[in-house]
Amino acid sequence: MLELRLVQGSLLKKVLESIKDLVNDANFDCSSSGFSLQAMDSSHVALVALLLRSEGFEHYRCDRNMSMGMNLGNMSKMLRCAGNDDIITIKADDGSDTVTFMFESPTQDKISDFEMKLMDIDSEHLGIPEAEYQSIVTMPSAEFARICKDLSGIGDTVVISVTKEGVKFSTRGDIGTANIVCRQNTTVDKPEEATVINMSEPVSLTFALRYMNSFTKATTLSNTVTISLSSELPVVVEYKIAEMGYIRFYLAPKIEE
């Protein structure tokens, strides 16, 4: 038996909107510690890892570990039927081939339930090693989204370079080139407007903008984004989910042949 009650249901709606175009089908894993997901995109270039800790739910019951295969497009269709202020409860019985999403309006005058068919997904679970990253940049998520969108109008790839001067996003395409430098800026009114660069070694890596742009669909989940880079590793683009956990996108770099 599984029953998870999330008062801020909009978080789950936003999570789905941010991953449904990257991943078609995924297993949601439920344990006593939380509700999580790990899935690769169909080209096996990017990986998304989601964690919603049990403490973030108003009610969290998970009698035994469960893995529920869901089509994210279908799940998104159902969650779109929940209001932004609705409380969302996820329910499933042991061994059942369906999951139920229940939506309650804040005033309890409208209660809906949607039952969705589960699917068997033979997904590979990858081990993500703990890593010390050479450069970690935290910046406003809207700024990062703006940069990715702007650069994708000019080129297909972005070179992210971190030096002690700042973080540089560069692209090149048929019409020309673009360089955007964001310098460390901690003298702002609000901490979420700061750009903070923690660099132990300078790093420069090339990534496909198509994926970066897809990751920025999670911008609504957090005011800030953290980009962790090391020369021999996929980049990690992390959006914290208030009080609950995170959504992390891993993207393998492109290298010169």
């Binding site: 690769m40 080209s43 096996h44 270039v45 990017a46 990986l47 590979e124 679970h125 990858l126 081990g127 993500i128 090693p129 297909d156 790839t157 090339t206 496909a208 590793l233 996929p234 891993y250 993207l251 393998a252 770099p253 492109k254 290298i255 010169e256 042949e257």
Partner: peptide, 14 residues
């Protein structure tokens, strides 16, 4: 252009 690497090159199956 540069070659896209696969994520599975960095993270192995568990």
């Amino acid at each position: 252009g540069p070659k896209q690497l696969a994520i599975t090159r960095f993270f192995s199956k568990v």
